[in-house]
Nucleic acid binder design. Structure first.
Lengths: 200, 200
DNA sequence: CGCGGCCATCTAACGTTGTTAGGATGACTG
DNA sequence: CAGTCATCCTAACAACGTTAGATGGCCGCG
């Protein structure tokens, strides 16, 4: 049945075009401009067509959130290749904040509360995984024993999120926020190092 | 002219009632339920009356943000009386996160991006001032020299905001978020202590 | 006391939002 | 060639923020 596969391919294609258009509108004109009718216009369809591909607007936005995290991980991949673990940690901290500044509206929907918390957490899983890996190799490299690994991981995660939010638009300015992220992680790591039983 | 003063008093009174009603709706039913018509219903007026007291919805929400910060400072005042600076620092960190968990919707509008960044920063000024005071007395008490005081202050501020956002609803659970806030500030302070030239 | 004006308030409406229902159009199947 | 099915659009609904115009009652002045 070649026709049904072609139909499915077309369906998937317009679905992808919808996501792409939504992303474009979001990044260019902000979250308030992200409306079903504008998305439909951008893909040259009428509004109800969108509902053939997504249950509702939240489902579509959730897709943008997932896309945003994939994009962020992709932009971080280069920084992740820095061999020195300390430099890598700081670099990834500042680069994740830079991402927030370069994609402010996308970062907004990625971290804001309108979308379901559980789904958001799932979408952020790769980033959290990256942080876990950073923390383990860092603590191994410096013979640091973390009293509670998960706790330390959540602290870094929360800290970077908070500082990225500061630097998302203009609260402190993005390059300063990047510097804050570097300093904050450096200080956190220094603190854990000082706490480690080896140094006690 | 007693009548005009009475009128002014009545105006101020209904204005206050509007804010109170809006706050009640926001805290009970969330930000999506915070609509002009529902607020007007709650004060037994029609919707346009709200616009005699506030230029638009954003102005009203901004008032809620200011009120939220005053409320937060009030709830933190008791914790601020803890005499020991280290205990006070950790206590205020966890209490600010607890506030976010006990007033999740209010905290949402206080920290989310829909309202103007500059106005939000101004509303948060007392909290930032509190953090500055904490940092100065802490560094004085421990003879710690901070390389960049403003930077350290922003780092604490961003860290607590981020962790509070984690604990706002259910991402990690609020009491765990409080613990994270304590540990995070403790670790940050430990890190700055280790960095201080006195210890170098 | 009565009358004119002003202030507060309401009803009605506009434009836009997310979302759904019903019908038309056209392509594939037998 | 006829029928079925997916696809798409027009139209509409409820609710939103917001504004215009009408209505009413209270105040101060003659």
């Amino acid at each position: 049945m070649p026709t049904s596969t072609r139909r499915a391919r077309e369906r998937a294609n317009t679905r992808a075009r919808i996501i792409e258009a939504a992303l474009h509108i979001l990044e260019n004109d902000g979250v308030t401009a992200l409306t079903i009718r504008r998305i439909a216009d951008a893909v040259e369809y009428s509004a109800p067509v969108v509902y053939q591909h997504f249950a509702n607007k939240d489902a579509l936005v959730l897709e943008l959130v997932a896309h945003g995290h994939r994009l962020m991980m992709a932009e971080l991949r280069q920084a992740a290749e820095e061999p020195d673990i300390d430099r890598r940690f700081l670099l990834l901290a500042s680069e994740s904040v830079r991402f927030a500044g370069e994609h402010p509206h996308l970062y907004q929907v990625m971290n804001d509360n309108t979308v379901d918390a559980e789904e958001r957490l799932r979408a952020a899983a790769p980033m959290i995984g990256l942080l876990r890996e950073l923390l383990t190799t860092w603590s191994d490299a410096h013979d640091v024993v973390l009293a509670d690994f998960d706790e330390a991981c959540d602290i870094v995660w929360g800290t970077l999120s908070g500082i990225a939010s500061l630097g998302r638009i203009d609260t402190v300015g993005n390059e300063r926020a990047q510097q804050l992220a570097r300093k904050a992680t450096r200080t956190l790591l220094r603190g854990w190092q000082a706490d480690s039983p080896v140094n006690a």
